[in-house]
Design a protein around this nucleic acid. Structure first.
Lengths: 165, 165
DNA sequence: CCAATAGATGAATTATAAATGCATCTTCAA
DNA sequence: TTGAAGATGCATTTATAATTCATCTATTGG
């Protein structure tokens, strides 16, 4: 409805970085398989940049969320049971959100006496309160779990099990 | 705590565009003055780009939120009483938010069967529900209203009333 | 009527940072 | 000891918010 000549900015979205982080957790929640999951595999399944994914995995490993092992036969795995990952905490960390507006960046004349900030903080808190009511286990319940399982099996069909030498 | 070599993305913030929009509304909520408020004045008070502010004002005027008059003696004014501006609606329009993740942009393999989207939508709804509990009148209550009044008076002291010819 | 003022509009440019790509290193197991 | 996997850092590309510039339109006062 808002008709403007120029395009309005649209920033309040999760970055692809966070998006990938969530997908990695979801993909790893499927445990019924022999071969370990590798970064290359996830990148292929979701058709995303392997390098970007590497950074996401690295950040999550540093958080203690992922167990990574190098070398041949290495790969990724969840470091905890799926119901231990609270979505709010995951997103908050990956997105590095602190405030919706920064009253100090270009110093606002109303800083310190502005009720707007309080309202925005309250709204953001409500946002994360909802997210924290859910865990990774919740989002990979059916039918999502089934879709993830299919994604895994698609892989083992299309790829050689370990190496076709 | 999240220690990474590179810097994590930090996107989920309001744009300066939206930020300015809110400040304009707050500034205009002060009605006890003779001269009309101009874009140039607001830009000066908040030390921001006059041109960028122009776009914000324009977008809000098209929404019917601002009454603008051109020409000498022109300026801006709120088009409605302050308690008619719901913060959620204002921010939603200025920020153009629809979804936190776009399952289709790089088409996600789980699209259509993913519980994550539902959770994020619910959280975003909670966010705006809080914001919609507040109006412009709420955020310009004391002490904010006082700070805004001072901003206005600072101006009339520092600037000649109409032109020092 | 004219000049000054104020918003309207569009194009072009700049700045910022997310996303991507590349090169190299480290680790581990067969 | 070789190949496979993640780790790390840097450079590049891309997207877009922010800014600037130029010009146009509308309104008022002299």
């Amino acid at each position: 409805m808002l008709r403007t000549v120029f395009t309005l900015p649209t920033v309040m979205q999760l970055t692809q970085f966070t998006d990938l982080g969530l997908r990695v957790l979801m993909y790893l929640s499927y445990q019924e398989r022999e071969q370990p999951v590798t970064i290359a595999e996830i990148a292929e399944r979701f058709a995303i940049s392997r390098n970007h994914l590497m950074k996401v995995v690295h950040a999550m490993a540093q958080q203690g969320w992922l167990a990574t092992t190098r070398g041949k036969g290495g790969g990724l795995a969840l470091a905890m049971p799926a119901d231990q990952y609270r979505l709010g905490q995951v997103i908050r960390q990956l997105e590095q959100i602190t405030v919706l507006i920064d009253c100090a960046q270009p110093p606002c004349a109303l800083r310190g006496q502005c009720r707007l900030k309080g309202v925005l903080d309250e709204a953001l808190a409500a946002f994360f309160t909802v997210l924290d009511r859910y865990t990774l286990a919740d989002v990979v319940a059916q039918p999502t779990g089934q879709a993830i399982a299919i994604l895994h099996r698609l892989g083992s069909a299309g790829l050689p099990p370990a190496g076709n030498s």
